[in-house]
Design a protein around this nucleic acid. Sequence first.
RNA 1: GGGCUAACGCGAUACG
Length: 339
Amino acid sequence: AILGTSLISTYAAWSRLTDARHIFSSIQGHDVVSWTSMIAGYAANRDVENAKLHFDRMPQRDAISWTSMISGYAQAGYLQQCRSLFLASPHRDSVSYNAMSQAYVVSGNLDQARTFFEEMCSDGHHNSASWNTMIAAYAQAGHSHESMTMFRRMDLEGIPADSITVISVLDACASVAALDLGKSIHAEATDRRLLCDAGVATQLVDMYAKCGELHDARCIFDSMHERNLLTWNTMIAAYHNHGRNRRGCTGGLDHILGLFLAMVAEGYEPSDVTLLSVISSFSHAGMFEQSIHYFVSSPVDFAVAMKLDHYQCMIDLFSRLGELGYAEELIERMPVEPD
RNA sequence: GGGCUAACGCGAUACG
């Protein structure tokens, strides 16, 4: 049954709910944990209906079952249902408070999230994830300064920043090019041995690049022992964005192509984000055939589908070439809705 | 064996 529950979480993490459900049915003697894994699986995949079905049907619930369901409502943006369940829960702990907090964030009520956070602080229900929730929420909403202020406050209160804190606040630094704070966070992350986290290092690459410090970004990229898809995409986008701001500068293209070939050689599947940087860079550098080549061959060579952004790039390319007929034809025949 | 928070995506009242 323990093996079965592990399988359920694994399938759920891959969004294979049908398989998860199949394993669940084949287990004899469901316990709280296997029921809760199903709830969490549906919740993570935004299927609140099925999550609730399992929540109602299970014979007994513990704190984790309640929080999984509360979080499901939160992520799906069901603020009212989330609040009712949170208030009805016999097991309110920091994790469930944070899930409730996230419901305000997801439903766009940042001010209410803040009020709720301050109440949590005075009642002592908060933990470092509560801080991270607010820092990330402000950063995502474009309130970069508020995000950085919350970070400073967390720092002053002596709460150690973890990798999620650092990633979140660096996002804010990057969007307003707050290089000084970014550097001091870099130093703090180094002291706290967080640089071995690929997410933290990737975010530093992004921060330096967006602050215009492409060289520092590349140094961090080169020093990384473990990279992931986002690391490659971030570094490629860095050269792409840098080149876009200086007309006719094709120096970045060599880097982009080199990185692209290197990531493929290392066995990474380029994503739609990777390819947007690649075809857009070629197009803006006037290398139209290369751009078209990657647009056409990538869906064949890699597990990637061209999206609206990629079609827009091609339409722009044909239009600038004066091939308005091709551009129009592409708009009419592309498999995605034009905006 | 199960629960909260995080990073890449040109731009966004429209042109480049």
